[in-house]
C-alpha cells in the first residue's frame, strides 16, 4: 500500500522497530511509577544496558547473551537508585538525575576500546510463509525476537498489574503507602523490586539500541531516548496498553520525519520534533481535566516512605 509516495507497510514496520527501546524502557518505568517511585534515571540505566550488552555480546559472540547482560546490568545499576531512595531516603528527583549523569560517565569509561566494532547479528525470526502475506507480512512478520518479546511484555505487564495479586499490591503501594504498610506489605521492599524491574527493562532497551537499532557502541549513543520513555509513561497515563500506543506514536513521528523528507516533502523539522511533547501535554490536560483524580497518576508518586515495622 503506497500513500503519497510512502509504503505504509514498511513505514509501520520501521516504526515498530524504532519504538522497541522506548517501549521496553517505558514499560519498566510504568511499573516503577505505579509503585509510587519516580525514577528519572532511565537514560542512565539505558546507556549502561547499551554498553554492557554490547560488551557481553561481542565478548561471548552471542547477541542473546548481550540482551541478558544488558538487562542484568541495568537492574544492578538501578540498585544505586533503590538503595539511595528506599534505604537512605534520598529525594527521588535529584537521585534520578544524578543516576543519569553517573550512567553516561560510567558507560563511556567502560566502553573504551569497543568503538568501531560490529556486534553479532540479531536476525529476523524465521516465520516461514507468514513473511509473504501481502501488507501484513512485511509489517508484522519480518522482525527480530526482541520486537516480539517487547510486545509480549506489554501484555505481561498489563496482566501482572491488573490481573494478579502482585499487581494489586504494587498499585496499593503506589496509591497509598501508609495504608499498604498498615495492611502489612513491606513498601520499600516491593518498591525495590519494581525499581530493579525498571532497571532491567531499561537496560534491555539500551542493549537493543547498541545491538540492533544501531549495531555499534559509541559514547552517549542513546541520546535522550530515556527521557522520551519517561514522557511516554505519562502520555499513557500509566497503562501498559497505552504505553504501546504511545511508543508507536513517538516512534512513528521519529521515522516519519526522514521518510517524508526522503519522499521529497519539505517539512519543518523543528515542528515535527516538538510535536510528540506538545501532544503529550495536550493528552495530559484532557485526561486530568475530564475526570479529576482518575488521571491515573499514582497518588504517592515521588514520595519516599519510611516506616519501622
Amino acid at each position: 500500500m503506497i500513500v503519497g509516495g510512502l509504503d505504509i507497510a514498511i513505514l509501520l514496520a520501521s516504526l515498530m522497530v524504532g519504538a522497541v527501546p522506548i517501549l521496553l524502557a517505558a514499560l519498566g518505568e510504568t511499573v516503577v511509577e505505579r509503585s509510587g517511585v519516580l525514577n528519572l534515571g532511565v537514560e542512565g540505566m539505558m546507556i549502561i544496558g547499551a554498553v554492557t550488552g554490547f560488551i557481553a555480546a561481542v565478548t561471548l559472540e552471542n547477541a542473546v547473551a548481550g540482551f541478558i547482560a544488558g538487562a542484568l546490568c541495568g537492574a544492578a545499576f538501578s540498585l544505586i537508585f533503590a538503595a539511595l531512595t528506599q534505604v537512605f531516603q534520598a529525594n527521588q528527583v535529584a537521585t534520578g538525575l544524578a543516576l543519569t549523569l553517573f550512567g553516561i560517565g560510567v558507560s563511556s569509561l567502560a566502553g573504551q576500546g569497543y568503538n568501531g566494532i560490529k556486534p553479532p547479528v540479531t536476525g529476523a525470526v524465521p516465520l516461514g510463509l507468514l513473511r509473504d502475506i501481502p501488507f501484513l507480512g512485511p509489517m508484522l512478520f519480518r522482525h527480530d525476537w526482541v520486537v516480539y518479546f517487547s510486545l509480549f511484555m506489554v501484555f505481561a505487564t498489563w496482566f501482572v498489574l491488573n490481573r494478579t495479586r502482585a499487581g494489586l499490591i504494587i498499585r496499593a503501594v503506589g496509591e497509598n503507602h501508609e495504608a499498604a504498610h498498615a495492611l502489612g506489605y513491606k513498601v520499600n521492599r516491593i518498591r525495590l523490586l519494581c525499581i530493579l524491574f525498571g532497571g532491567a527493562m531499561a537496560g534491555m532497551g539500551g542493549a537493543y539500541v547498541s545491538l540492533v537499532r544501531v549495531p555499534q557502541w559509541t559514547d552517549n549513543m542513546t541520546n535522550g531516548v530515556g527521557w522520551i520513555a519517561l514522557a511516554i509513561v505519562v502520555f499513557a497515563s500509566w497503562r501498559p496498553g497505552r504505553v504501546l500506543f504511545g511508543a508507536w506514536l513517538f516512534g512513528g513521528l521519529m521515522v516519519l520525519g526522514p521518510n517524508l523528507q526522503a519522499a521529497g516533502y519539505a517539512i519543518p523539522v523543528e515542528y515535527l520534533s516538538m510535536a510528540p511533547y506538545v501532544i503529550t501535554i495536550i493528552v495530559l490536560v484532557i485526561m486530568s481535566s475530564g475526570r479529576g483524580r482518575s488521571l491515573g497518576a499514582p497518588a504517592s508518586l515521588g514520595q519516599n516512605f519510611h516506616a519501622s515495622r
Binding site: 510512502l6 520501521s14 555499534q216 541520546n223 523528507q261 523539522v269
Partner: peptide
C-alpha cells in the same frame, strides 16, 4: 538524489532512521 536532513552531526539512531527511510524509497 534525495536529501534527508538529520539536524545532527552525530546521533546514531537518527542517522539509522534517515538511512532506512532512503532505502525504503528505493535508494
Amino acid at each position: 538524489m534525495s536529501v534527508v536532513w538529520a539536524y545532527t552531526w552525530f546521533d546514531p539512531a537518527k542517522e539509522a532512521d534517515a538511512a532506512k527511510a532512503l532505502i525504503d524509497q528505493g535508494v
